[in-house]
Design a binder for these strands. Structure first.
Lengths: 88, 88
DNA sequence: AAATATTTGTACGTATGTATG
DNA sequence: GCATACATACGTACAAATATT
């Protein structure tokens, strides 16, 4: 998956969608660590800010938890809140 | 109210708290427009980024709504979601 | 109608602090 | 002590929607 830099969908939302998909599909299973923010940034070619915003969305959705100095982790499904409307 | 630039509390949280207080106290009543992001930035001496993050918190809490090109508005209390824990 | 100003939204880059390994 | 990784914060630029002149 790659970002559409020309599209109207904001990059941080696109990035969030991609990562959300990887979590939903089990490609990155619960408890597993995600790539570091630096890796994500480099892989998708976006800024730290954009990466941060994307991750914050996932954090709000309860899909990931961040552990300072350790990394980003996929939450256990039973720990996730009920999804509200409008998260694609 | 002013920000404590030396304190350990992040500036964006401090700023959010101040604005939250102004809303809660009725100083800025429901339906009323808040100062623009530029004004906020200038008044408190923080960056756009920091202002944005503070406002995003309030947006998540349902205290404000933003209207592109128009401004930031205090939501009607009946439109706000039940407050979750940990919003000081 | 048209140009200008205001205001929010997105995005970049950079620097520094703090926690963990 | 050093490397890795997340967190906060700064400044800047431009796009998009709205309001004003």
């Amino acid at each position: 998956m790659a970002l559409d830099f020309e599209g109207k969908e904001p990059l941080y939302r696109q990035l969030a969608s991609i990562l959300r998909g990887q979590i939903a599909s089990g490609q990155i299973p619960p408890g597993r660590r995600l790539p570091s923010k630096l890796s994500i940034r480099q892989e998708y070619g976006v800024s730290q800010n954009t990466t941060e915003r994307a991750l914050q969305l996932l954090r709000e959705e309860g899909l990931i938890e961040t552990s300072m100095g350790r990394g980003l982790f996929v939450t256990q499904p039973e720990d996730r809140p009920k999804p509200q409307a409008g998260q694609d």
